[in-house]
Nucleic acid binder design. Structure first.
Lengths: 132, 132
DNA sequence: GCTTGACCTTCCAGTGCCGGGAACCCCCAT
DNA sequence: ATGGGGGTTCCCGGCACTGGAAGGTCAAGC
């Protein structure tokens, strides 16, 4: 399999796959012409990586998960720990974004959005006093 | 005012303030010794920037908002448009993260998290078949 | 006057995760 | 021979900083 075939199968850009090889996530063989020669196992790994990335795991977490995936004697607790940590981080991000959203929603609703300069958004950003 | 004073007032690291000067968000004066000499107006701008960044606005949006803030003849509609766009992006991010969270929550709950290798998290990432 | 230490300066490199594009090679069809 | 569509490497850019090195400046203490 050439890179574009495996890219289509894994749903990843070829650039990303080259990058993943660069950082050692996959190690495809090489044809005599220098082209990468992907095995089925490489395609499976890339699919795995694509799904893990889509769930927001960092590359380093993906590396760890991939290693556990390949380790038949893994403990599922190790996998779950990584996922649970990541879940926590996501929840923190959601909380941060939700706070931003609430503030912004208020501001956007209180701003007339017309041709006059009075704007509670700028007033809020500008500090307790007016602006300077 | 030296950089550490204004940093304390705006709640931003000195590094960040130098960076903001680099990219033209602020233009502090210079003392004869080469130190940056911040005016009150610089401190106000930095406070503004800190708050806008805390709401997740990109630097370029901050630049635009700052320009509007300084423009006494602005239309509040322009401010609101920027804020509303940003709000949309935040809502998209929240939706993405929420989907990730829901998937992860399910996976984490269905994984026993013990010393045995069976793991629905890996099964889910690994594709329809087992792994290879 | 000299040292100490906190503060300031500039510049360079790195972060995470690729995307864009140059410059070049390889292979197949015409 | 030529054209087009693969592939390859390499380097830069982008977001918004952050860390660190190497060195100038200032106020205080001895």
């Amino acid at each position: 399999m050439n890179i574009s075939d495996v890219a289509a199968r894994a749903g990843l850009p070829a650039k990303t796959i080259r990058y993943y090889e660069d950082i050692g996530l996959i190690k495809p063989l090489r044809d005599t012409n220098g082209y990468r020669a992907f095995r089925e196992s490489d395609a499976h790994k890339l699919t795995f990586l694509g799904r893990a990335r889509a769930l927001g795991f960092t590359i380093e977490n993906c590396r760890a998960l991939l290693a556990l995936w390949e380790d038949k004697s893994r403990a599922s607790a190790d996998v779950r720990a990584i996922a649970a940590d990541h879940l926590n981080e996501i929840e923190v991000k959601i909380a941060d974004l939700t706070a931003m959203r609430d503030t912004l929603t208020n501001l956007v609703h209180t701003c007339a959005g017309n041709s006059r300069p009075d704007c509670p958004i700028l007033t809020s950003l500008g500090g307790t006093e007016g602006n300077g």
